[in-house]
Amino acid sequence: MAQTLSNDDEATEAPATDRRRKSDVVQERHKLRPGSLILLAVGAFVFLFPFYYMFIGSLQANPDTSVAGAFPQPGNITLQNYTNINSSINLLKGLINSGIFTGGVILCTVVFGLLVGYALAQLSFRGRGVVFGMMLLVQMIPFQLLLIPLYVLIVRDYGLGDTYLGMIVPFAINSTAVFVFRQYFLQLPASLFEAARIDGASELRILWQIAVPLVRPAIVTAVLLTFIGPWNEFLWPFLVTKEQSMQPLAVSLANYISNIAATASNPYGAILAGACVLAAPAVILFIIFQRQFISTNLGSSAKG
């Protein structure tokens, strides 16, 4: 962790380090000022406290909403809430469904996104401009406009309600990820591919054996970007799945909150236990891969 931390700081601060020697004025600007630090610390507390409280709350045998309840009380700790929520909604089944939904979207995004990203960056073919324009336009289409027609088409006409396919299809290829792939492929020198072409390699082979190994960081970034969407998505899988055995965890937990919680003995404990299980994979993933989720990647993809 310490290693990655210092690496990251060097990477983003490198230009500033050069300039720092220029003048004392600039050096002063980069000095750690207490005001900034206090501000940042208050911010971090506000952002992190609910997560800490989520965990503490999920362990409380009796919900304790006093200020003292925000600290762990040895006499009030139990894992019962996890058992309770698991008996109402099958946590493992929910996690598996979320995983299949998210995994399907990531797989489609990576496979088809790499193909089209490579084509947009390194191949010259008729219609490239149109594909590129579409990719940018698509990111502006608001999902709420598609809600009703997609529901009519996928659930009613094609009968894909309560199927994984029905959940995955509207999210299948993440256009932001396509854009990230294109940006990374653009940075590779065209001469690299010319050489392989002269040697007679097919484009698919060039992509798989030369281009893809060179853009591994792009794949991690794209997977992370794509992961957030389906793992956290509520509205669409909520519309598609009526059977509990098919629901992703976000949907079954939401149904628990709105329908079942009122009848439970310790509803908040159970809700928070479910919330911890739902939140943990995303939080852990983003802490492990935090270096791949830095401002420059996001900025370039969102700037369009």
């Binding site: 990655t4 931390l5 990251d8 700081d9 983003t12 601060e13 600007r29 980069h30 750690l32 000022r33 900034s36 630090l37 940042l40 911010g43 971090a44 952002f47 992190l48 609910p50 997560f51 409280y53 989520m54 709350g57 919900p63 909403t65 957030i228 793992w231 956290n232 509520f234 976000a250 949907v251 937990l253 939401a254 909150i257 908040y268 809700i271 928070l272 479910g274 919330a275 911890c276 739902l278 939140a279 995303a282 939080v283 993933l285 983003f286 802490i287 935090q290 989720f293 830095i294």
Partner: peptide, 30 residues
């Protein structure tokens, strides 16, 4: 402007963004 603890702050800021709304709504209700 901060160089020390930068990663910690950055990660703590985007943790809510990457977490499912359904999960954090649970704790906000509480």
């Amino acid at each position: 402007r901060v160089t020390r603890l930068r990663t910690f702050f950055r990660v703590s800021y985007y943790v809510p963004y990457v977490t499912a709304s359904v999960a954090v709504i649970g704790v906000w209700l509480f």
